[in-house]
Simulated scan of single mutants.
Amino acid sequence: MPIFEYKCADCGKEFEELVFNRDECPPCPECKSEKTEKLMSACKFKTGGGAPDMGDYGAAPAPAASSSSGCAGCSGGDCSSCGS
């Protein structure tokens, strides 16, 4: 079910509304004005299945450093950042 974001031209209130007709602009819940406009919203989705956790921005987690070479911070594999 599509939820769209709107803004009232009279009072400036931004609100979300579940609508079935994409072209419909519901009245403002604050001042009841009919002068509302649809806002552009960011798309948000969540991957399912065995996909790695991508966090909020879709960045893949950093690969784990091997214990033999260490990390860039210590080069010996013996610090808290590389976990060795």
Rank of each mutant, 00 (worst) to 15 (best):
P27Q: 03
T47H: 11
E30C: 13
K46Y: 10
F4V: 00
C25A: 12
C71K: 01
C31K: 08
K32R: 07
A72H: 14
E34Q: 13
G77F: 10
A42G: 09
P29V: 06
C25E: 04
P63Y: 02
R22L: 09
A65Q: 09
R22P: 14
G76E: 15
Y6N: 00
C43F: 13
S33N: 02
D53I: 03
G70Q: 05
G77S: 09
S75C: 09
A64D: 04
P52F: 07
S69G: 06
T47P: 00
S69Q: 12
C28W: 05
P52D: 01
D78Y: 02
M1A: 11
C79L: 11
D56P: 01
G73R: 10
G73Q: 11
G83C: 06
M1C: 10
A51Q: 08
C79F: 03
E17L: 07
S80P: 06
E24H: 15
F20D: 04
S68C: 09
S33C: 07
C11A: 02
E17A: 15
G12D: 06
S81Y: 10
M1E: 09
C28D: 00
A60P: 00
V19C: 10
K35N: 14
S66I: 03
G55S: 09
A59H: 15
G83M: 13
P61Q: 14
S66M: 11
C79V: 06
L39T: 05
T36Q: 03
C43K: 13
E16I: 04
E37N: 09
T36C: 07
D53Q: 10
L39Q: 11
S41N: 03
G49A: 04
M1H: 15
P52R: 15
Y57R: 14
E16L: 12
G76C: 05
E34S: 08
S33P: 00
A59S: 04
G58R: 07
P52G: 02
P63H: 03
K13L: 14
P2S: 11
D78L: 14
E5S: 15
G12Q: 04
S75W: 10
E14W: 05
G58P: 02
P61V: 04
C8D: 04
D23K: 14
S41M: 12
Y6I: 00
S68A: 12
V19F: 05
